[in-house]
Every structure is written in structure tokens, then in C-alpha cells.
Computed example of a mutant assay.
Amino acid sequence: MGVAIRAAGEGDRELIVRLLDDAFQDDPVSGWVFPGAADRRAKHPALMAAFTDIVLAAGRIDVTEDGSACALWLPVPAEGHGEGDAGDDEGPAQVREAVDPDNERIEAIGRLTAAVHPVGRAHEYLWMIGVAPGRQGEGLGTALIEAVLDRCDREGLPAYLEASSARSRALYERLGFELAGPVLDLPDGPAMWPMWREPRPHLPA
């Protein structure tokens, strides 16, 4: 497919935030966190900025050269979540305070996903992947994910994510992810599917 991918840096922050904001405006989980369309348009970018900052500091963001898609990855050690400020006891509350102190769901989503996150084995955590709405369906997300899964296979590392829609769940299943435990049903909201992928044997070229 020949999708050019590079690691994002601090200079790409605004690009990544805009990309994630556009990609997730209609996502079921974003709609649950910000139920009102006007409220979501106003405050959703700040949540995406908080996530971007956490991953720039503690993980890796891959972006296509044309800026149309990005993937946020965090390395998770065997002994803990490794999610930086988002994964510790105070992280979800700090994100809520920074984004919208009156919105309890910002904190709830962080705590609920942390509660179902597998522990005990080091792995790569795909926190978010966003593709510009006009570029979806072109295989950009698959290319971003496969680039990291290839490395996981070489290094013998599992990978983990939470699918936020049935469409994304189907994509991840095609890439070798399987359901990992019970479905996470958000209170009065949509489902999220914890998914795990064991590394595949790496065959030398």
C-alpha cells in the first residue's frame, strides 16, 4: 500500500489534536462523554489535547506523512498500566479538572477503562487511532496498526486496546485481536470491547 508513516513530535501536537477531534466527533464513546453536540464541539478538543499530551510524554504517536491519520500507543510494563497521568489514581480526576470539571463522565471513562485493563504482562496499548473523516476506508488505520504489530511480533509483545464501535471491533479482529474479558458497558451508554492480541511467530525474511 505504501503508506508513509513517521513518529510525531511536539511540533505535531496541534495537528494530532485537530485530527483526533475530527475523527472522534461522531464516535459513540465521545458522544457519551459529551452528549450535547454543541458541548462536544466546544470541549472535545481539550480532551483530545489532554490525551495527546499524555502520549507524547509517555508513549509514541505515529502519523501518516500527509497528516490524515494517527495512532497513539503506550508501552505498558508488566507491573502496571503505564498510562502516565491517565492511569494512576489521580489521573482521571486531573484530566476532568483540566478539560471540564463539571463533567463526571470524563473521569469515569478513565477509571472504567483502567479497571478492565489487563495486568501482569508487558504489552503495547493502542489508546486511540484516528483517521480524518474524508479518508476513512482507505486502509490508513490498518497500515498504522500493522506497523506496530510487526514490531510486537518481532519482540514477542502482546497488544491491547478497547474498541469503541462495532466497526472498529471488526477491523481489530481482522488484525488478530480477540475479546479479552467481559464487554464494558458504559452507564446509560455504548459498549466498549477490551481486545488482546498475542504476538505471532516472526519469520525472518
Rank of each mutant, 00 (worst) to 15 (best):
M1A: 08
A4I: 04
A8Q: 13
A8H: 12
D21L: 05
W32F: 12
F34W: 06
R40N: 12
R41W: 07
H44T: 05
P45T: 09
A50V: 02
L56E: 01
A57R: 15
T64H: 13
G67L: 04
S68L: 15
A69G: 13
C70H: 05
C70V: 14
V76K: 15
P77K: 01
G80W: 14
D89K: 03
P92V: 10
Q94N: 12
R96I: 12
D100F: 05
T113Y: 03
A115Q: 13
A115N: 10
V116G: 01
G120F: 15
A122D: 02
H123C: 08
W127K: 10
I129E: 00
V131G: 15
V131N: 15
P133G: 08
G134R: 07
G134S: 13
G134A: 14
E138D: 13
A143V: 06
L144N: 01
A159N: 00
Y160A: 09
L161G: 09
E162R: 04
E162Q: 11
E162G: 05
A163C: 10
A163I: 08
S165N: 09
A166H: 03
E173H: 08
E173C: 07
A180T: 05
A180E: 11
A180Q: 09
P182C: 10
L186P: 08
P187A: 06
A191E: 12
M192S: 10
M192K: 02
R197A: 15
R197C: 14
E198N: 00
P199N: 02
R200S: 13
H202N: 11
